[in-house]
Simulated scan of single mutants.
Amino acid sequence: MSKDIMQVLTQATVDVALAGRVLGIGKNAAYRAREAGEIPSIKVGGRYRVPTSKLREMLGLPAHEAPREPGLTPPIVA
């Protein structure tokens, strides 16, 4: 699995350029899409971040399921 997709699956937010890469568009197109509201974003500390839950929806991936690394035990849910 690519590093970019792993970040989308395991982090709460990613930068706009990474969101563009996983969507298959260039950096400039990603920033234009963010400006147009086509890529949802929030401003954190002066920088725009893309919530990965929304990005996963755009990609047709499960909204809250994070992949497990091989050999790791699943988390215990109480």
Rank of each mutant, 00 (worst) to 15 (best):
G71Y: 14
I42E: 15
T10D: 10
T73C: 11
V50G: 09
R49Q: 15
S41F: 00
R32L: 15
R68V: 01
Y48W: 15
V14P: 00
V44Q: 09
A19T: 02
V16C: 09
Y48P: 08
I39R: 09
L59K: 06
Q7S: 15
L18P: 05
V77K: 06
I25Y: 04
T52Y: 10
L18D: 07
M1R: 14
V77L: 04
A66V: 02
R47N: 11
R32K: 15
L59N: 03
G37R: 00
L61S: 05
I76N: 11
R56C: 01
A66W: 03
L72E: 14
L23S: 05
R68Q: 10
M1L: 13
V50W: 09
T52G: 10
V16L: 10
K27Y: 03
M58P: 05
D15N: 14
K3H: 13
P51A: 08
L9F: 05
E35M: 12
G37S: 02
K43E: 15
V16I: 12
R49N: 15
G46F: 14
A78Y: 14
V14Y: 02
R49T: 13
L72N: 12
A63C: 03
K3G: 09
A30D: 10
L59F: 10
V44P: 05
H64N: 13
D4E: 11
A66L: 07
G71L: 11
T13R: 08
K27G: 06
M58C: 06
V50M: 13
A12S: 03
E57C: 10
E57F: 06
E38F: 12
A19P: 01
L59Y: 10
A19M: 00
A66P: 09
L18R: 03
G37T: 00
E69R: 09
T13W: 09
M6Y: 14
Y31C: 07
E65S: 05
A17C: 09
G20C: 00
T10G: 08
P74Y: 07
A30Q: 09
I25W: 08
G45A: 04
I5Y: 12
L72F: 15
L55D: 05
E65T: 07
A33D: 14
A36I: 03
V44N: 07
K43H: 11
T10R: 10
M58V: 11
E69D: 09
L18H: 04
Q11T: 01
L59H: 06
P40K: 03
V16G: 11
P70S: 08
